[in-house]
């Protein structure tokens, strides 16, 4: 995919290029280059199939990574385009004009990660979580365990002992 990288670099400012497999690469671009790059990949490089669009929460870095994965069937290869956006007030340009199906992905990202895609059809409509009032649950700081403990009752009577602690209590309670 070296050839593709060379060609793309001629008109787009490419960030980190990761050659994951012979037929799969990931490349980071700035958000302002995304739309143009995707259109170029679709129209001139044969990447006509939007495989998926999803986000990765890099909570520690205060960033979301958006991954746009595209497939060129004829060439049997894929490219994942990464865009890093700030977590705070996260929003991104919609690509539903390139692929109508992207609206579904963007609607889900809006709901699950709280990333807005202004202009994307029905982006504010509830998707899976009808009636959800908590923070977007796929964010890393949403604690599923805590949520489950608060929302659901544990089955009564369950207790488990740690072997090491149990043996200490039974065999050498004073620690010596």
């Amino acid at each position: 995919m070296q050839d593709l990288q060379t060609r793309l670099a001629q008109h787009t400012d490419l960030g980190e290029w990761t050659q994951q497999r012979a037929d799969l690469a990931f490349v980071t671009v700035a958000r302002e280059h995304l739309h143009g790059l995707l259109r170029h990949l679709r129209d001139h490089e044969g990447f006509t199939h939007l495989v998926l669009l999803t986000a990765v929460d890099w909570l520690e870095d205060g960033q979301f990574q958006l991954t746009y994965l595209m497939n060129n069937r004829a060439a049997a290869r894929d490219i994942g385009v990464r865009v890093l956006i700030p977590r705070e007030g996260a929003d991104m340009d919609s690509i539903h004009d390139l692929w109508p199906t992207a609206a579904t992905y963007q609607r889900e990202l809006r709901e699950m990660f709280g990333i807005d895609f202004p202009g994307s059809p029905r982006v504010d409509e509830e998707f899976i979580l009808e009636g959800w009032r908590d923070m977007p649950p796929y964010r890393r700081d949403f604690d599923t365990l805590k949520y489950a403990q608060e929302e659901f009752a544990e089955r009564p009577g369950r207790v488990s002992k740690d072997p090491e602690t149990h043996m200490k209590q039974k065999l050498y309670p004073d620690g010596a």
Binding site: L24, L52, G80
Partner: peptide, 9 residues
């Protein structure tokens, strides 16, 4: 597993 990302189809 070391840092990385991939897609398997």
């Amino acid at each position: 597993i070391p840092r990385g990302e991939t897609y398997i189809r």
